[in-house]
């Protein structure tokens, strides 16, 4: 860990868990008001070990192992933020955020507005999310749309270790509450983290692979699926432009609209159910703003509108490179 933020080291190949750990550590070194709160985040280091070693370094006044109550974690984090602290809360799994949903949506998201600007709510809520890990119920979900629908929240999701390192620090610096979705299927693959190179702005989307025929958009773990799809498509002579959304609220439409200007075709993808989803929002907005450049209807590739299924059949539920390419074929055939 210390290697990761040693200033003499300019880059390292790290898994996302360690990149997040380094980002948290950097933020805690930079600002003594940053606190970590959550279940099992102390000596254990969190069930995914994202906070490993931090209680030893910063003590139990900066890393708070809390009682097992999500509303309690969020509600007390709000009180701590009112007092001037910058709490970073860990929710253990995606499906466990809902006991804290009222405090997030009715309190945290509105606290600044209710106070007519008299305070800030710099609270980060980290949520490991998404499928592909073969786990049990409530451990593989993608609930980001609920939070993106709530005014007052910012919602982001990194797709790779470098972004995770920088976006965590940016989220903690934000004076607004940030829901930070961590794609847990991407926790372990290593990627290069460049410590000296400031990241892309927190809410910027980004073209991660240039192409000319079809624009494909996704966030979190979908980005690696899209890159696999682009490789497969290239072998068939089809050029996909892949956009990593990075921020779900607000959405940075610049790169998306710029890409659609070029390709005229858009496929939006997500693990979450498609009904009233982030992908639906993007499809509607692109149709509103770029109707005449579209050569085909915008298509969505999503999880189905069902509960996340038993893990034994999750590969049939989750959008795969082939499911993305099926949609690509349809927009090209239009």
């Amino acid at each position: 860990m210390t290697v990761a933020t040693d200033t003499s080291v300019t880059s390292a190949a790290l898994p996302m868990t360690k990149a997040l750990n380094a980002g948290l550590r950097r933020a805690m070194l930079d600002d003594p008001l940053v606190l970590l709160m959550g279940e099992d985040i102390g000596p254990l280091g969190g069930v995914f070990r994202v906070t490993e070693g931090l209680i030893a370094e910063f003590g139990d006044k900066r890393v708070l192992d809390t009682p097992l109550a999500e509303s309690g974690i969020i509600g007390t984090a709000i009180g701590l933020a009112m007092r001037g602290f910058r709490p970073v809360c860990e929710i253990q799994f995606d499906g466990f955020v809902f006991p804290g949903f009222d405090q997030i949506t009715s309190q945290l998201a509105r606290m600044r507005n209710r106070h007519e600007g008299g305070l800030v709510m710099p609270v980060v809520i980290r949520i490991p999310y998404g499928g592909h890990i073969g786990s049990i119920e409530h451990h593989q979900e993608s609930p980001e749309a609920y939070f993106a629908h709530t005014p007052g929240l910012r919602v982001v999701s990194p797709s790779n270790p470098h972004d995770a390192y920088w976006m965590m620090q940016e989220a903690i610096k934000s004076d607004d509450p940030v829901i930070f979705f961590e794609p847990k299927s991407r926790y372990w693959p290593k990627g290069e983290v460049r410590f000296g190179e400031s990241g892309t702005p927190l809410h910027a989307s980004r073209v991660v692979r240039a192409g000319t025929d079809v624009t494909v958009v996704g966030h979190g773990a979908m980005v690696s699926v899209l890159l696999q799809a682009a490789d497969l498509a290239a072998s068939e002579g089809i050029s996909l432009e892949v956009i990593d959304l990075r921020s779900i609220s607000p959405i940075d439409y610049g790169p998306i609209l710029g890409s659609v200007q070029k390709t005229g075709r858009l496929v939006v993808t997500q693990e979450a159910p498609g009904f009233v989803s982030v992908g639906s929002e993007i499809a509607a907005t692109v149709a509103e703003r770029s109707f005449y450049t579209l050569e085909a209807p915008v298509l969505r590739v999503s999880g189905f509108d069902t509960p996340f299924p038993p893990a034994a059949v999750e590969t049939h539920f989750l959008p795969s490179p082939d499911r993305v390419l099926e949609a690509v074929d349809r927009v090209l055939a239009y």
Binding site: I74, G75, T76, Q107
Partner: peptide, 25 residues
């Protein structure tokens, strides 16, 4: 004197977090 809170008992957690902050600072 903090703001009125209309969702019942939400403020109890805010107050506890605030009191935790008094300890920490």
């Amino acid at each position: 004197f903090h703001l009125y809170t209309l969702v019942l008992a939400s403020q109890t957690l805010h107050s506890t977090g605030y009191a935790m902050g008094m300890q920490l600072d």
